[in-house]
Design a protein around this nucleic acid. Structure first.
Length: 497
RNA sequence: GGUCGCGUAGCCGAGUGGCUAGGCAAUGCUCUGCAAAAGCAUCUACAGCGGUUCGAAUCCGCUCGCGACCUCCA
């Protein structure tokens, strides 16, 4: 049996995955900052690591999957500003930070459900772990790697770099960082430009604030992940995932903080997914080219030619290896939609096929080929979660399935065990590991009865060669989004959009 | 400017030095009352130039083009 290898961004090599505790695996993924709506770019890490989570589970690991929610910081909403500059403003008129956070957390959860992402085992919030963060900061100060200035606390990167390989994860040289000419907030307070904030003093107008040993303020961006991951997964844990754009400074800082606080590096395997691009450019806030999930699912965006089902988006993302960039286009999404329909229909056909039960394959060559294609799926997943190759193989099996149904391939061509393997492979991969769901609306009994009636009437018409009537039924149903298919065996099946 | 990565057929996209990935689109054929679906077949590409090698999309060098990070960012 082959073993799982994953590409470790830290060592830049594919490494054999061995969990810290046999049989258990710890997975931490950077979750969203809930100060705005999730967009297509955000979908990628959550779908990617959902598959990682599913696959580890499939391999038999008991996985603890932690995905945080960043709900602390400078939060604003268009038209309403969280930083209330008028102290006398009525409570209900100003924006409550938690109100904003609640709204976007709900929307985010809605998106995750639509994508059929499993819920994480623990979904900790930054605001719920202020004490843990303060404790960790105090610890770092005590160990001499952080200093306080005017109610803010900064991590001493220069000192850290003397002893530890700062910049290794992101491939950066500290000297370059020290020479940066950027003019950033709080730059004057820092000893060095590369230092980052662990705790920020809150100006009077900042509503989101907590009491700390350094006065009222709020935690720095990086500390929450370190505090929460160590709390729930331990000071060393297996996999930390996130987007490539988080490598620096976010993940680099996490490593530095945790290394000082705990005396060793926090993460054994770093995994980073690549970006989704649009017209060649990264989709991101700064580029003003985002397509929000609500827009994507409704088609309500100038760049969208149609609405795209969440499963189509999921499939589209999984058709590419997670470390490659993925370019958005209507054409690509539409291709994914057709492809997914084809794959799913083949799966439905396969579920209904009845195998005659022969233990020996009538076509041993085909039989061997099918076995190979099925088994290869495991190898592909084990090779750094290559969902693109898995999907490729599934598609190579589609003609086999359709041909058995269509009669081009004999029903006894495959042995009973190979047939079972084929069905098992499709089920395991399509549903359990890739986490796909049917696009088709689940029809109720009543619709089913009505359609049966129409199909019967049409069948009678066809028998009488009254094609005008039969075509009318088919065309009208088609306009309503219901497609009738005359099967070879004389039966009629239908799909509802 | 520094660091890293990418450039694959009409489009998307996988590719570990040698054996047509795959999807979508297109064309032809088969099946069908006609469709749809399905099956079969066709379309055989690796930015350019040079090098290593019996053999390179895959390794090395150079050139051109594109992008990411260096600042909030999935």
């Amino acid at each position: 049996m082959s073993e799982l290898f994953i590409y470790n961004s830290y060592t830049r090599e594919k490494e054999k995955f061995e969990s810290l505790v046999p049989g258990h695996a710890g997975l931490y993924v950077c979750g969203p900052t809930v100060s705005g709506e999730s967009h297509l770019g955000h979908a990628r890490p959550y779908i990617t690591f959902d598959v990682v989570y599913r696959y580890l589970t499939h391999l038999g690991y008991k996985v603890r999957y932690v995905r945080n929610i960043t709900d602390a910081g400078h939060f604003e909403e268009e038209g309403r500003v969280a930083e209330d500059k008028v102290a006398t403003k009525a409570q209900l008129e100003r924006l409550e930070p938690m109100e904003l956070v609640q709204k976007y957390t709900n929307l985010y959860h809605w998106g995750m459900r639509a994508f059929n992402n499993h819920e994480p085992s623990i979904e900790p919030t930054a605001t719920g772990h202020i004490i843990e963060q303060i404790n960790m900061i105090q610890d770092i100060i005590k160990k001499g790697y952080a200093y306080e200035v005017n109610g803010s606390v900064y991590f001493d990167v220069k000192k850290y770099a003397e002893k530890y390989p700062y910049g290794k994860l992101s491939g950066r040289v500290l000297e370059d960082q020290l020479e940066t000419t950027r003019d950033l907030d709080g730059q004057d307070e820092k000893r060095n430009k590369a230092d980052f904030a662990l705790w920020k003093n809150a100006p009077p107008e900042h509503i989101m604030r907590w009491t700390s040993p350094w006065g009222e303020g709020f935690p720095g961006w990086h500390i929450e992940c370190s505090a929460m991951s160590s709390k729930y997964l331990g000071q060393t844990f297996d996999i930390h995932g996130g987007g490539m754009d988080l490598q620096f400074p976010h993940h680099e800082s996490e490593i530095a903080q945790s290394t000082i606080a705990h005396g060793h590096a926090p993460v054994r395997y770093w995994m980073h997914n690549n970006m989704i691009t649009i017209n060649g450019k990264k989709m991101g806030k700064s580029y003003n080219n985002v397509i929000k999930l609500t827009e994507l699912f409704s088609g309500n965006h100038p760049m969208l030619e149609q609405a795209y089902h969440p499963m189509v988006v999921r499939f589209y993302i999984l058709q590419t290896h997670y470390r490659s960039t993925l370019d958005f286009s209507n054409e690509a999404l539409q291709a994914s939609e057709r492809a997914l329909k084809r794959l799913w229909e083949a799966y439905e056909v396969l579920k209904k096929l009845v195998h005659p039960g022969n233990a020996e394959a009538a076509d041993s060559k085909l039989d061997a080929e099918v076995i190979t294609k099925c088994k290869e799926c495991d190898d592909f997943m084990n090779d750094d979660i290559n969902t693109a190759k898995v999907i490729g193989n599934l598609f190579e099996l589609v003609p086999v399935i359709n041909s058995i149904k269509g009669g081009q391939i004999a029903t006894n061509a495959l042995s009973a065990s190979t047939h079972a393997l084929l069905l098992q492979t499709f089920k395991t991969y399509i549903q359990d590991i890739l986490g796909l769901q049917p696009l088709q609306v689940q029809q109720g009994d009543k619709i089913d009865q009505v359609l049966s009636l129409l199909i019967d009437i049409r069948r009678d018409a066809r028998t009488r060669k009254d094609f005008a009537t039969s075509d009318q039924i088919r065309n009208k149903l088609s306009e309503a989004g219901i497609t009738l298919k005359d099967e070879k065996d004389g039966s009629v099946s239908y799909t509802i959009e």
